[in-house]
Design a binder for these strands. Structure first.
Lengths: 203, 203
DNA sequence: CATTCTGACTAACGGCCGTTAGAAAATCTG
DNA sequence: CAGATTTTCTAACGGCCGTTAGTCAGAATG
């Protein structure tokens, strides 16, 4: 019944939780900006106000730290979209879809370095880290499959659903390569994407 | 009038040109698979059958090598799309657009490690390399702007054109994250994306 | 065959990396 | 205030990195 058993991450001695959170925040920002390999623990620690070795009091390794950053990234956007769906339960399937697009994009571009770090770094992260994230990623895929199946109709083929998901999520995630808040607006872009989605007769 | 002045890259002494080409090919594959930072010159040289130092006979630095790989990546897909447009000059604007989507995606997924290396590595490559590529990238953007403006109509706003370009190119480039040739087909995915593009009345 | 040039090799450089063990500081507890 | 615990620091380890200078083999040239 010691502290490492019971409430491991939330109510440790307070200082540790604060440092841990700050490390995660800075790591997310750096991973988003530079990538995984280009984020050195010395630079990261310096921005937190620590030395590199001290990070190991909070995380067992760089891979473990990166895994946690990216897992948070998936969960944050997944929770935001899931929440948005519940919050507006009376919309048409098409409106739900557009709503989900908007929330996903807002989270990515404004709300969370974790989510953008996940998207940008996932392809280049070690296999073991990718494996750790597989479950969370699949859960989020399932959220989208539900939204898109409701839009396309229950008779739609699985592949049709998957391809539309790839196209839409790709159109959103690609914004990390070009979006400039001084010039672009999330809502305007969503309007442009939504124009590609016809009303579908519930036949 | 010595050989370094005249025909610098094409008709050098033959052996060098062959080695140079092989280095570029292997570098493109490794950059696509692993990323820029994760591609070490020692590993690269080993796969070519050389030692790391020998690479410097052909390229002045890792950055120069990466720049050339990525520039080729832009030019290969740009040339392929431009060619495809000329080759099928009598299609409707919408058909031209779908044609361009197909060629871009085929080049990316089947034809060229250079193009996929460019897309995957560009965000994480040093600033100097990004700067070198700016021109070629803008040229390719202009190709797409032309295609999409023809589709949307001359009265379309610039921003509308740009956002549709981002959405479509994003939907294609994102395929690097999920496409599996054992399961997916380029043509099938293009059909799915093309369904999002309505016929537009030339009003 | 002798010479010149081409192309690759060897061996090392300084530098940064992730990681670790143990000392030291800071904080909490009685 | 004394002691225990939590958190950070110091200093180093082995390892890999991009890069360079100097050497050397082999092909091309006369």
């Amino acid at each position: 019944m010691n502290k490492t058993n019971a409430a491991q991450k939330t109510d440790q001695k307070p200082k540790a939780a604060v440092s841990r959170q700050e490390i995660l925040l800075v790591a997310a920002r750096m991973m988003r900006e530079r990538g995984y390999a280009e984020t050195s623990l010395r630079d990261l620690a310096a921005e937190v106000g620590m030395k590199a070795g001290s990070l190991y009091y909070h995380f067992a390794s760089k891979e473990v730290l990166a895994t946690e950053v990216m897992r948070l990234g998936v969960e944050i956007v997944s929770d935001a979209v899931t929440d948005g769906l519940k919050r507006a339960g009376d919309l048409s399937p098409r409106e739900q879809l557009v709503n989900a697009l908007q929330i996903h994009l807002e989270t990515l571009l404004s709300a969370s370095d974790f989510s953008s770090a996940h998207i940008r770094c996932y392809p280049f992260v070690p296999d073991t880290v990718q494996a750790e994230l597989k479950g969370a990623r699949r859960d989020y895929d399932r959220v989208w499959n539900g939204i898109i199946r409701a839009y396309l109709g229950e008779e739609a083929e699985d592949r049709q659903v998957r391809y539309l998901r790839y196209a839409l999520v790709g159109a959103l995630n690609w914004s990390l390569e070009w979006f400039d808040p001084k010039r672009d607006s999330v809502s305007d872009y969503i309007v442009s994407v939504a124009r590609l989605l016809p009303d579908i007769d519930p036949s």
